[in-house]
Write a protein that binds this DNA or RNA. Structure first.
Lengths: 198, 198
DNA sequence: TATAAAATATACCAATTGGTATATTTAAAT
DNA sequence: ATTTAAATATACCAATTGGTATATTTTATA
């Protein structure tokens, strides 16, 4: 069973992570945090060294949730090329889902932390690399299995897909219009059909 | 000739715009502003109603500079399809150029203002629409002149290009790696050749 | 050059910032 | 049930926040 402190830590992260994600680091104050959690500074600073450490834990907490959800979704098929279609399938509904998280953590914290918080930015970079490695790995498996053309540079293609997805997420949020996500996913599906398929 | 006040206003915007762009609204304090400009609060508040008004003026100032530069670059050719290639040409060097502006204003302020500053966000939306209208207009002219296939939906395609560009800008900044911008521009050039050309 | 007006500087405000030392409460182990 | 340790609350800190009223300086006009 979890100790009381562990439950408190979880409660803090569950409450605070979306706030940091939505507002950004500087725009989130410690009183925002105590108000939202219903806890006092004693409880917060007892569980986290300082504001920055809490922000980093919050980012990791949100990303873990997100990555788990994607991973589960990708298990719906064993075929590499079908897994790629499952990725676009996932992001077609990403606007509604990520709103619960306070927005896309990679986009929000990536922009927010740039030239502001080195440690936080470092964590974003690591996550982006991890995501791209996973997509590249799927493509490589597709090549091995013969589903995907051997001409394809897996890592380059993974970066391309990631770039397009992040662009679509940014546009959908900024314009408050799901067209961008939907259309970009259609575009990627076409790319998979026309460029990737063996 | 410009009055002293107009010069001061210009000096404030020139100095402050990149700071707001780089740090974001909340992370930029009035003392950051007075320190950077060498002016006092009296001068700042005498020229701008409040912090928000200054942030909005700063955004507009940066965007105007950026848009003028793009427009000038596009005048290097009269051919619509060549103008599209000039757009990718421009963004190939966008990392170095936009750093002088404190980053990409559309990306930075778009993310920063989301769910934070309604007025600022509204201004970002207007600029994005303006950019897309201009690209769509170029494509339409290409169709009229017979350079671009009449099958193309100009507005949809303009949005696609914009989405890809913004994604590449985000990735290049977050990963501090120009590969994303360069590769995306190559990809767009290929699209122009393969999908757009009549 | 004197005067009016515009522009800028100074001094101040209450409220809030992130953080800490200590007091109190709560939970775990004997 | 008592003790001990862990967790949380309270009260406080100096520094900074955005903003304002007023004083001073600078500019333009006559």
């Amino acid at each position: 069973m979890q100790t009381k402190a562990e439950l408190t830590k979880l409660h803090i992260l569950e409450t605070v992570a979306p706030i940091f994600n939505q507002n950004g680091y500087a725009a989130t104050s410690m009183s925002d945090i105590t108000n939202a959690t219903g806890l006092t500074k004693g409880a917060i600073y007892g569980n986290f060294k300082n504001k920055e450490a809490l922000a980093i834990s919050s980012f990791k907490f949100t990303v873990k949730k997100l990555m788990t959800r994607i991973s589960n979704h990708l298990e719906l098929s064993d075929s590499p090329i079908q897994k790629l279609f499952l990725i676009t399938d996932f992001y077609r509904n990403y606007y509604d889902y990520s709103k619960q998280l306070g927005g896309c953590p990679v986009l929000n914290i990536g922009v927010d932390a740039n030239n502001q918080n080195t440690l936080l930015l470092k964590n974003v970079k690591i996550i982006i690399e991890k995501i791209q490695d996973q997509v590249a790995s799927i493509i490589e498996q597709g090549i091995e299995v013969g589903e995907i053309s051997a001409e394809i540079n897996a890592m380059q293609y993974a970066k391309r897909l990631d770039t397009m997805i992040q662009g679509a997420v940014f546009m959908t949020y900024t314009m408050d219009d799901e067209f961008y996500l939907k259309d970009t996913m259609n575009q990627i599906d076409q790319m998979i059909h026309n460029e990737l398929k063996a």
